[in-house]
Amino acid sequence: MNAVLKPQMHPDEWKARVELAAAYRIFDMLGWAEMIYNHITVRLPDSVTGGAKQFLINPFGLHYSEVTASNLLKIDIEGNKLDAGNPWPVNPAGFTIHAAIHDNVEGAHCVMHTHTTSGLAVACTEGGLAQNNFYSAQLHDLVAYHDFEGITIHADEAPRLLASMGKRPLMILRNHGLLAAGHTLPLAFVNLWTLQRACDIRVAQAALGRAIPIPTPVAIKTTADALQFDQRFGAGQDVFDAMTRLMEQRCGPGYKT
């Protein structure tokens, strides 16, 4: 790792870059990539920025499988590129909604957005996510909904999206896809993974007739008992570490370069 560490780069920035590059490769391994589109973004810590709002985002034009720690772009809250030595362009329009959440939602260190088939299918249904399976029962009162307004590139949509999101860490963008935010990348990942699994099962139920609903008190208890979200049990870190090891076994350590 030292061989590729940029001399002027703070070690905390490099750590954030490696973790985010791993996330992009994991998304690709899971089939969550969307050509060159969509984003996972993280805010760099104050130890790196001195309190300025700076973020890491994927280079526009690269597939998730091509993202590495060194080719990630550093940008400001307006989506302007800060690392002039990086030849790849940034997609500032694609950062619009991420910027609004990073800037206004407390603890939104990481924001993830996907267009998975199951997630988008559920987002297109009137009923949305049904509280009738093991995974959706872990998400009681954690999922917000936002009505479709077209491609999310216009800043004037941000206040309405933030109002829809409130303080919930997950959001189903109707007719569009899924979104997660978290105070760490691993927590955002495990939240999104749980929502994705719930959507997968919801789609599978479609051909089986009416599903058995889970009573609200049981869902409240199930959500409280979901250990992967609990800081005492890693808040997703152990899951993310395991997925990183699996990704390295399959794809190699090239994401660290």
Rank of each mutant, 00 (worst) to 15 (best):
V67Q: 00
L129W: 07
P92M: 00
H146Q: 04
I151V: 14
D12L: 08
A198H: 08
T116G: 13
D156H: 14
P159M: 08
L30T: 01
S65K: 15
A23D: 03
G177P: 11
E78G: 13
Q138A: 15
E66G: 08
P169M: 06
A235L: 06
Q231P: 11
G209H: 12
F27G: 15
K167I: 13
I172Q: 01
A16Y: 05
G128E: 03
A93D: 03
T223R: 06
P7H: 05
V48Y: 01
P45V: 02
V48G: 02
A206W: 12
H10A: 14
P11M: 07
V67M: 02
V90G: 05
L129F: 13
P45C: 02
A180E: 12
D141I: 10
A33E: 10
G31E: 01
L120W: 10
I220F: 13
P159A: 00
L179N: 03
Y64H: 13
L5A: 15
Q8F: 13
V42M: 13
R197P: 14
Y145N: 05
D156I: 05
L56N: 07
A181H: 09
T152M: 02
T257L: 08
A224I: 11
R43T: 09
A3F: 15
L120G: 07
D83E: 15
E13I: 12
